[in-house]
């Protein structure tokens, strides 16, 4: 499958670039970002505990307690994905700089009849990488939201959680 992916992506990358290594780095970045996002669970567990009072040895829900908003608990949990998406700019720069390594293959790329070939080979993978980061962070966001809504006692939920998620997007008033 990996070989198949490499073969499919090869026309979208600078000729001869180590695609396997780039995909590995991208996968590592994704895993690290995912692990970093697990801080959501630590925050959530802490706030979840505060919803309960101890009556002797039994735990009782404090109905007057309100769970902090999902977006507040989420905090910067997804910033790993954002950093990874931003690092795709560096990957595009690396792809361009690759044409100066060991030779000046930039001369060949610049004189190809297809004027978009150089641009396509420099930015396609970074764009796909950024898109993958966006999709992964959206998936993680939805998963964490589902966990938040499922496990938080309804009595402690503040209304309008879904609307507040949109405040994560810059420029969207809530």
């Amino acid at each position: 499958m990996r070989m198949n992916l490499k073969r499919r992506l090869a026309p979208c990358a600078p000729p001869g670039v180590d695609l396997g290594q780039e995909l590995s780095w991208l996968a590592c970045g994704g895993i690290v970002s995912l692990l970093y996002s697990f801080q959501f669970f630590i925050r959530y567990a802490k706030h979840y505990e505060q919803l309960f009072l101890w009556d002797g040895i039994s735990r009782v829900l404090d109905t007057s307690a309100v769970m902090p908003d999902f977006v507040d608990i989420l905090g910067g949990s997804l910033s790993g994905f954002q950093v990874l998406a931003l690092s795709m700019v560096a990957l595009a720069v690396y792809h361009y700089a690759y044409h100066f390594q060991g030779s000046k293959s930039i001369y060949l790329m610049k004189r190809l009849p297809d004027r978009w070939e150089l641009l396509r080979r420099c930015i396609t993978l970074p764009l796909l990488g950024a898109l993958a980061c966006l999709c992964a962070s959206a998936l993680v966001l939805l998963t964490y939201y589902a966990i938040y809504m499922t496990f938080t006692p309804p009595a402690c939920l503040a209304p309008g959680q879904w609307q507040r998620i949109w405040s994560l997007l810059p420029g969207v008033p809530v």
Binding site: P15, S103, S105, R111
Partner: peptide, 19 residues
Amino acid sequence: HKNIDRVSFATSEHSFFPN
């Protein structure tokens, strides 16, 4: 780009892909 294929270039700096 329309007629560049009619011109080729060899340079001592090399314009191939080393890998």
